[in-house]
């Protein structure tokens, strides 16, 4: 594993834990898109089915189990425990417009027409757009709590670092996976606008708010 991949995985973990911690501490999931969190739970579930079929390393297995557990815990907090604080009216992105085309694409473009491989491909495609309901919610309300922006930054950083990881792996290992690379590029691009706001506003101590 190279340094980019290592930092990326921990940035991803940090994002997940920041979100869980924020919801737990404030006893509220205001401003958080439950739909994005359900999509991430689906992403992890469909991607990590290989937990049942193959063992890669203790690190790999532990991280996969932690990601899955945390994402289900987050969904539970939003839709069950702190449901009263969930801002469903603003979480109005139509997820079927993501899931259906992504499902179709996974069936059409994959490395191998086998169930596990198609589900893995589906999870890669779905992850690249799973944050859209959250970004849509922020654009609708015009603002985000600072802690939510830290969450988004860690999540975006994770994907950006994976791009460096793939460049590294291509040069030093001759490894590349076109499906992951293209989806990773799309995913990173979706965060660019947010990165700009994060650097120009949040890092200067201002709240992230969008012009009306």
């Amino acid at each position: 594993m190279n340094i980019f991949r290592g930092i990326a995985d921990f940035s991803h973990l940090a994002a997940i834990i920041i979100l869980l911690h924020k919801i737990w501490k404030s006893r509220s999931c205001a401003g958080i898109s439950g739909k994005s969190q359900i999509l991430f739970a689906i992403v992890f579930t469909t991607r990590y089915l290989d937990l049942l079929t193959s063992f890669i390393s203790l690190y790999n297995t532990s991280m996969k189990v932690i990601y899955i557990s945390c994402s289900y815990a987050t969904v539970y907090l939003i839709y069950m425990k702190f449901r009263a604080t969930y801002d469903g009216n603003h979480d109005s992105f139509r997820v079927e417009f993501l899931v259906v085309p992504v499902g179709g694409l996974a069936v059409l473009i994959n490395h191998d027409f086998a169930l596990l491989e198609i589900l893995w491909t589906f999870s890669i495609y779905l992850e690249s757009v799973a944050i859209l309901p959250q970004l849509f919610m922020i654009s609708k309300t015009g603002e985000a709590e600072t802690i939510t922006t830290h969450y988004l930054f860690c999540l975006g950083l994770y994907r950006a670092l994976y791009l460096f990881n793939w460049i590294w792996r291509f040069y030093f290992e001759g490894f590349f996976d076109m499906i992951a690379i293209v989806a990773g590029l799309v995913q990173t691009v979706l965060y660019c606008d947010f990165f700009y706001l994060y650097v120009t506003k949040v890092l200067k101590g201002k709240k992230l708010s969008l012009p009306a």
């Binding site: 290989d50 079929t53 890669i56 790999n60 490395h111 491989e117 490894f175 076109m178």
Partner: peptide, 10 residues
């Protein structure tokens, strides 16, 4: 080299 049925990346 791709398409292994355990994916080493997360």
């Amino acid at each position: 080299e791709f398409n292994i049925y355990g994916h080493d990346e997360l």
